[in-house]
């Protein structure tokens, strides 16, 4: 969400670099040497069957699940080598939107958005109020939602409020865990548009775990597919459609995928051409 001064490096720089990652719980191994790159400024859709470990990977990158071996670099810093202070500074540069929102139920939406600001920044109450309301408006919530508690919001509004909180510190990188799950198709499409608009205006990098083929076609620049503990295919939607892996084939060229593949050229800008 930060506009860089002249970026003369030219090459696409990698914001998250995962190498040879192994994660397991007890005797069960979930990630078997997984490699993944997320580039600056892209929307990466991360797909995989239920129970394949999509959320586990997200949680491992966020440091909520310990890894067995492998290397994770975020913003070029090896997460094993950073000390607590650097880690805190690093965490300030990304925002997370959890699947169920994970809003603090005892705080209003506005206080939820202000919570990270209050902890990390030294701002006047007036500016915090203004910025919180600005973020709430940016995610398309009505202004009176600001003083409501999460239990008074609908599912779609909770998702928006969670996104507003994820954006509170103007992060460069946003993790979205199934942002459109549980929304009706119209709400989901609106949310896709919202993510895309915010991503463009604020220059975000988005790491999005999703099941929603519509979202994938609509807003993802690149897609990574997870199966058998590895990324089995990575690239644009064309790459996915031409992949010979049975799971990828079933996912993108199954009954639901075919309809979208046929109509996508009329409906959406070509993937990857941001």
């Amino acid at each position: 969400m930060v506009v860089e001064a002249a970026n003369g490096t030219g090459q696409a720089d990698v914001i998250i670099r995962v190498r040879d990652l192994v994660v397991g719980f007890g005797p069960k191994i979930i990630m078997r040497g997984l490699d993944l790159d997320v580039r600056r400024g892209e929307v990466l859709g991360f797909v995989g069957g239920s129970g394949q470990g999509k959320s586990v990977l997200t949680r491992t990158i966020l440091g909520l699940v310990p890894k067995r071996s492998g290397k994770i670099e975020v913003f070029g810093q090896d997460l094993d080598r950073v000390d607590a202070d650097d880690r805190r500074r690093l965490e300030r540069r990304y925002g997370v939107m959890f699947q169920q929102g994970a809003l603090f139920s005892g705080l209003t939406v506005k206080q939820n958005v202000q919570a990270p600001m209050r902890e990390h920044l030294k701002l006047s109450q007036r500016l915090m109020d203004e910025l919180a309301l600005l973020k709430i408006e940016l995610v398309g919530l009505p202004r009176d939602a600001a003083d409501k508690f999460p239990s008074e919001l609908s599912g779609g509004m909770i998702k928006r409020a969670a996104l507003a909180r994820a954006l509170a510190l103007d992060p460069e990188l946003v993790f979205l865990d199934e942002p459109t799950s549980g929304l009706d198709p119209i709400g989901a499409a609106e949310f896709d548009d919202l993510i895309q608009t915010l991503q463009r205006t604020l220059g975000l990098t988005v790491f999005m775990v999703t099941h929603d083929l519509d979202s994938i076609y609509a807003i993802c620049d690149r897609i990574a597919a997870l199966a058998e503990g590895k990324v089995i295919a990575e690239g644009t939607i064309q790459t996915m459609l031409s992949s010979q892996h049975p799971w990828v084939k079933a996912y993108f060229r199954g009954k639901r995928g075919r309809v979208l593949a046929l109509t996508r050229d009329d409906r959406h800008a070509p993937a990857g051409g941001l």
């Binding site: 506009v3 001064a5 203004e130 910025l131 973020k135 940016l138 103007d170």
Partner: peptide, 15 residues
Amino acid sequence: RVGRMDTGGAWLIDR
């Protein structure tokens, strides 16, 4: 000559 700018900066400048 502004280096980086985020929504907070944009808000304050425009305010």
